[in-house]
Design a protein around this nucleic acid. Structure first.
Lengths: 379, 379
DNA sequence: GCGCGGACTGTAAACGTTTGCAGACCCCTT
DNA sequence: AAGGGGTCTGCAAACGTTTACAGTCCGCGC
């Protein structure tokens, strides 16, 4: 079986080899292997058997040359670190494998220029593009993206774009957390803000402000500056610890700052949550290791990636026809993770609280993608 | 400029369009754009100008159909979380972009079967493969991998393989850390082990045992079981805290366990490092946030990925001829990160200590790839 | 003046698929 | 017995490149 072929060195098996071996034409092989219905059943199984025996793998370049499909989508991602990045990739990758698509990755783009170059390089090789670009102006995308290539933005969008987008609803998450703190009985809730230009940071701040205005009218908001770093959280924490009337609760725009803040509060002799409640945002892994464990807002990153991928494939499949319909911005609702630091829920267990519907298009809540594993695997 | 073309809907620009517009043959366009030298300079620049104006992008499938190169390498990775995964990808991606290669990613493989399927799917689409498979038997790789396709393993290898491999020298790292603890004056050093079947865990244990035997002859090793989880570290810590003669130092096979252990020691009223020194392995981000910051062993993951990629491309370029030469196992030396928890170095700053040469092939130390950023970026 | 070589350019084949079209065959109906 | 229809199969074109080969043109040396 599998007779030697004349040539000097072994070249890849092609459809012709299968055809010769199975004693049919290449057209029949193609039809049999691609599941067309106009093939006699016994011929089909024979061809399949021969193909398997020869370990035939279709040459994807040849195939996509004629079908004009690559079965590949590209992901253009910025320079990201840690859990956020890996979760996003995980979600995209899972969805891709489920649809038997391939994933062409290009990450670590520092600026719009790098992203544009990477975009160029991907042009012939993908059926669609997932683009995450924190750079203020996504105009370069419209500049370099061929109008026919489906693409989905993973950004918090700010203004006009002809591309559909998917984003985490930062504002809704911050709103919900603030509401939770209010429900705990806290009235004086201070907020440690993120860096100025950052869209995520500003949306979170907005959620805090909105909730305060709507749920605790008359209470003055207090915003302490920060920049998402642990150090800035530490500084904010020691500042607040010296405050004459201590706030009842402290809400940091991300977990890193909350952790830094926790250190500062501890140094000042304040106990969390007894003397002051604390909450963060992101649910980074360290959040569950702090003492006390940190109440925070979890963002289902893997879900975000998976959903974006599925939408993109739908766009690809529809050949750009549904494009007009899907030309929208969808928001993915985050969920609260209540741990001990807010004083409400002393247990260590996670109890997700679904958020209510927020403005713009909303995604139906479902949980088909598995929850992100809490404990980091080995290593 | 860019005159309308007759057809109904806009199809991609091909080399023929450029040829027609530039009034030369397609062969000349190809030669001009690919930098062949047998093209008149003025013709070349004219063609380049026209191609740019038409936004011509070569159809990569057509190109690789004939060149038999895809300019793409594939990465087959297991189901990984967090920093380790993202650093690895970052390193690979950077190297890929530097060599203008594309990266086809398939991750989250739970078992050998999934990896094999993913491998199959990638077969026609990549020039080479980077494979990381923690599954005990990499035999399936040899089974499904065409003999002509260059590939590099990212595993700690255990025994025979015809593939070149690159791995982190777990044993050397554990050895160096144990030596450091001994240099600090500790003699009774206990080790919290990782899960039984795990290769990383066993290599680390071996490093500890070797160091103890060679550097502190006569001292009895103490190995406490663990499974890499924070909980198991906690259990090990409370066990040890109750010990009659307390060990002077405690070395956990990974940081998660060290952190769990730290909690347990704290609950038992023991101060680190005054009452007992503590060290971990991996340098996960949380390691620098603990109180006191954790002394640990850092693994330059991004470097590992980048090196592996560069070697793979060299293999691809050499058309498999150097394969015999490169058929080796290279070890990447980790470095110590001394923080306060070991009692030696009270400062918070990282001071990497290069390791001495260890057995097998060793990689020349260089630091061309930038250090992994310490503080997690925004989000 | 003629041939020769060098520099450049064009023609066409090849890469491995998919698929429209047409042919072959068989069975059924008339 | 002839024709019609259905089912299956093969032929060959097409996809967009690269590149071997065969020119063409020009200048130069004889």
């Amino acid at each position: 079986m599998g007779r030697d072929r004349g040539g000097a060195r072994q070249v890849a098996i092609t459809i012709k080899d299968v055809a010769r071996e199975a004693e049919v034409s290449v057209a029949t092989v193609s039809r049999a292997l691609n599941g067309r219905d106009n093939v006699a059943p016994e011929v089909r199984s024979h061809v399949q058997e021969v193909a398997a025996r020869l370990r035939y793998v279709p040459h994807s370049a040849a195939r996509s040359l004629i079908t004009r499909r690559t079965q590949t989508i590209g992901a253009l991602l910025p320079d990201m670190h840690g859990e956020f990045f890996s979760e996003l990739i995980r979600g995209i990758d899972r969805a891709a494998r489920a649809q038997s698509y391939h994933l062409l990755l290009s990450s670590s783009h520092g600026d719009a220029g790098e992203t544009a170059i990477a975009l160029q390089a991907m042009l012939g090789r993908v059926d669609g593009l997932l683009i995450m670009s924190p750079h203020a102006d996504p105009g370069f995308v419209e500049e370099y993206l061929p109008p026919t290539l489906p693409a989905i933005l993973l950004n918090p969008v700010h203004g006009h774009t002809r591309l559909p987008a998917l984003a985490v609803d930062n504002r809704a998450g911050a709103y919900a957390m603030t509401r939770h703190l209010a429900h705990c009985g806290h009235r004086h809730i201070a907020f440690i803000a993120g860096p100025k230009g950052n869209l995520d940071a500003e949306e979170r701040l907005q959620g805090y402000l909105d909730a305060l205005r709507e749920l605790l009218p008359g209470v003055e908001p207090q915003v302490v500056p920060g920049d998402f770093s642990e150090e800035s959280g530490y500084r904010a924490g020691s500042l607040i610890a010296r405050q004459k009337p201590l706030p009842q609760a402290l809400f940091a725009a991300n977990d890193s700052m909350a952790i830094g803040c926790l250190f500062a509060l501890g140094e000042a002799g304040l106990r969390v949550p007894d003397d002051i409640a604390l909450a963060g945002y992101d649910d980074i892994p360290s959040a569950r290791f702090t003492q006390p464990p940190l109440t925070t807002v979890r963002v289902r990153i893997a879900d975000l990636g998976g959903r974006a991928f599925d939408q993109l494939v739908a766009l690809v499949a529809s050949d750009g026809q549904t494009k007009a319909q899907l030309h929208s911005v969808q928001m993915l609702a985050p969920e609260l993770v209540l741990r001990a630091s807010c004083g409400m829920n002393g247990s260590k267990t996670t109890s997700p609280t679904p958020l209510e519907e927020k403005k713009r298009t909303q995604i139906e809540p479902d949980a088909r993608r598995r929850s992100t594993s809490a404990i980091p695997k080995n290593r």
